[in-house]
């Protein structure tokens, strides 16, 4: 049986890099073909033939991490701070790539632009075992209100 405690520790460590966003280090957790996806529709089949809120591969992560700390990005004049609370962590075995499929519920508080917002999310990680830890091949964050109008979201959840 997979050590669920070890997986939880990995999710906590990842979330810590997003709570006080450090996108440079967060990005290092991903495999070279890693992707981050936030669909805009419940049960959205794929990120290519349907629009998404986020769908970043390493190329867009590279642009985003540089933009995030650029002094001329006006929307980033306001710092973003988050608080991830992670629960209901479960594994459902491995997928066709041999990656471990992990699901969790994450409630994320985001403070940005004088306002605190609440995001209820269902998260799926595809994790590649790597030594004592993991690397992320794919992370999918489905907002429970994904189809609702959203305000600017300046960081990954």
């Amino acid at each position: 049986m997979t050590d669920i405690r070890k997986i939880e520790e990995f999710l906590y460590d990842e979330a810590a890099l997003l709570d006080n966003p450090d996108l440079d280090r967060w990005m290092e957790l991903f495999t070279e073909d890693g992707t981050y996806w936030m669909p805009v529709a419940e049960d959205q089949a794929d990120p290519i033939n349907h629009v998404s809120i986020f769908y970043d591969d390493r190329v867009m992560m590279e642009v985003r991490r540089r933009n995030y700390v650029h002094p001329r990005a006006a929307s980033k004049d306001h710092h973003t701070r988050c608080s991830h609370v992670i629960g209901n962590v479960r594994t459902s075995g491995t997928n066709d790539h041999g990656d471990l499929v992990v699901t969790s519920n994450q409630h994320v508080l985001v403070y940005y632009r004088h306002e605190q917002r609440v995001f209820g999310t269902r998260v799926e990680h595809h994790l590649l075992p790597d030594g004592d830890s993991y690397r992320i091949r794919h992370k999918k964050v489905t907002l429970i209100n994904c189809e609702a109008p959203q305000k600017s979201l300046t960081v990954y959840l």
Partner: peptide
């Protein structure tokens, strides 16, 4: 769809700077 997502999404790197203005 790629364009819509990269430029017009609430999480894009273009739209939020416009909205900030």
């Amino acid at each position: 769809l790629l364009y819509s997502r990269l430029i017009n999404s609430s999480a894009s790197m273009v739209g939020p700077d416009d909205l900030e203005a």
